[in-house]
Simulated scan of single mutants.
Amino acid sequence: MKKRILPLLGLLAVMFFFSSCSYNSMVKKDETIKSKWGEVQTQYQRRSDLINNLVATVKGAAANERGTLEAVVNARAKATQITVNADDLSPEKIKAYQAAQGELTQALGKLLSITEAYPDLKTNQNFLALQDEIAGTENRIGVARKNFNESVQDYNSSIRTFPANITAKMFGFKEKGYFEADATSQKAPEVKF
């Protein structure tokens, strides 16, 4: 009887060891995703904060562009209302967040294109500085999204591979969502002269 129990206990000990290693690894990867998500949100918040200053600067030079300014303000308000908890990064929630941010990106693009109609605005130092800040922030957003997607890929791969997938199912680790390209970015912009 002891001869049968010892190998079984040994097997259980080995399974427990590998399971605990997988669990700890999944927790670390989940925390990495939360950290990367925080960075994505930080960069979007930075952009949101800069937009108020940009709108105020454009208002002074282009008062008759009220529709565009209102669209930017409304898109910003909508984008800041949608929040995604780092504990629930499901693909659906990521898409909803991304859609709201995409609307803001489009409205911001229209606002920045106003500069062609207002030569005084193009030379305004405040506007130029804000435009540079927003361009830099857009780059930071891109890097933060890339880093987030890389950590999601690492996590999703780890919870789907054997034997970690057993541990993942036992402890409720679920697949996380990726940031994907905005549908409007699939079509190249048309440049007219």
Results as ranks from 00 to 15, higher is better:
Gln43Leu: 11
Tyr44Ile: 08
Arg47His: 00
Arg47Phe: 00
Ser48Gly: 13
Leu50Gly: 03
Leu50Pro: 05
Asn53Glu: 04
Asn53Gln: 05
Leu54Cys: 03
Leu54Ile: 01
Lys59Gly: 05
Lys59Asn: 09
Gly60His: 09
Ala61Ile: 02
Ala61His: 15
Ala61Asp: 04
Ala63Val: 12
Asn64Ser: 13
Asn64Cys: 09
Asn64Val: 12
Asn64Leu: 11
Asn64Pro: 07
Arg66Pro: 06
Arg66Lys: 15
Thr68Phe: 13
Leu69Phe: 08
Glu70His: 08
Glu70Phe: 13
Glu70Cys: 12
Val72Cys: 03
Val72Phe: 03
Val73Ile: 15
Asn74Thr: 15
Arg76Gly: 02
Ala77Glu: 06
Ala79Trp: 04
Ala79Glu: 00
Thr80Tyr: 09
Gln81Asp: 15
Thr83Met: 13
Thr83Ser: 15
Thr83Tyr: 07
Val84His: 10
Val84Thr: 12
Ala86Tyr: 09
Ala86Ser: 13
Asp87Gly: 12
Asp87Pro: 07
Ser90Gln: 10
Ser90Cys: 10
Pro91Ser: 11
Pro91Met: 07
Glu92Met: 07
Lys93Ala: 14
Ile94Pro: 07
Lys95Trp: 02
Ala96Leu: 05
Tyr97Asn: 05
Gln98Ile: 03
Gln98Arg: 03
Ala99Lys: 11
Ala100Val: 07
Gln101His: 01
Gly102Ile: 01
